[in-house]
Design a protein around this nucleic acid. Sequence first.
DNA 1: AATAAGTTTCATTTTTTATTGAAAGTTTAA
DNA 2: TTAAACTTTCAATAAAAAATGAAACTTATT
Lengths: 167, 167
Amino acid sequence: MEFREAKNKFVQTWGALGSQWGINKTMAQIHALLMVSNEAVSMEDIMEELQISRGNASMNLRALMDWGIVYKEYKTGERREYFTAEKDLDELAVKISKERSKREIKPALKVLKEVSSIEADGTAEERHFVEQTTKLYDFVLKADNVLDKMTEYKDNWLAQILLKFMK
Amino acid sequence: MEFREAKNKFVQTWGALGSQWGINKTMAQIHALLMVSNEAVSMEDIMEELQISRGNASMNLRALMDWGIVYKEYKTGERREYFTAEKDLDELAVKISKERSKREIKPALKVLKEVSSIEADGTAEERHFVEQTTKLYDFVLKADNVLDKMTEYKDNWLAQILLKFMK
DNA sequence: AATAAGTTTCATTTTTTATTGAAAGTTTAA
DNA sequence: TTAAACTTTCAATAAAAAATGAAACTTATT
């Protein structure tokens, strides 16, 4: 396999993976492209390389910047904007999990808390509902916290968490 | 909030969360419904409660069973099939992460290995590509393994992983 | 302050994904 | 072995999500 083919395969695969995990294909592809570029890339280049429209490129670049995993760069003497991706993978993981937690897990937790707090002295059905949603709330909260800790001390998280536990 | 409202809210929320993570809405909703039911539920009931067609119910129940998180149950003297969900949340997490790893992470790793193995003594661009995809391969592999370990020893995974590390 | 070079927005269109429903298939039991 | 009760499949349809592209907007330069 030669370079261009490999690069293309990587971008396509990353895009497919993204869409399986609820991140739109183009957004993941742009990110992939920037990840493996050794220098900042202009919007034109991205449009050209992925064969997408200006609007699409613009909106997904904006989304990637909102996630904090793509940065704008200005070259002196040039009007055009260039883009680079966060290339530190630990940093990338931290940002993605923080963002998804904020956008998706936290709101879900809120609902879980709400629905598990209904009065249910009634039927077995109701008691089971409250029990199960309460367990789910605790579980999701715990999982979210572990993730948070893992990312907070990104280097050697295991040792760090352990330290915290022992304190 | 009273019971029916709470139950409905839970099912809707779980469905939305599912679709944000690449699991189809109905599949997540059926799972939610079964999770909070204290007894096995028939396909008819599911169709009725979620207002979905027979085909849809059938296909998504099949998918949930393929994932190993929903089981068929037979009631003696009844023709009809009933369904229950895995209610142990640790077990649920294990099964979901195993399944997603198998379906999505493993194939992605394969591609990453492939594309990071190209000959690249050429340009800086090519060298950067190989370096970056190699890092990514290592990272994803490591993350996948940690998850695997966490789920393998689901109770007190921290201590267990630590033990392994120390051996 | 006019213009040029570039970027963003968003109504419309396209693509992708999920759902329906009717026909085919199974299974149980009389 | 037939029929009734139920489930599965899959081509057609609907719904949801993503992409387009042209107009509006911004900013830098002369």
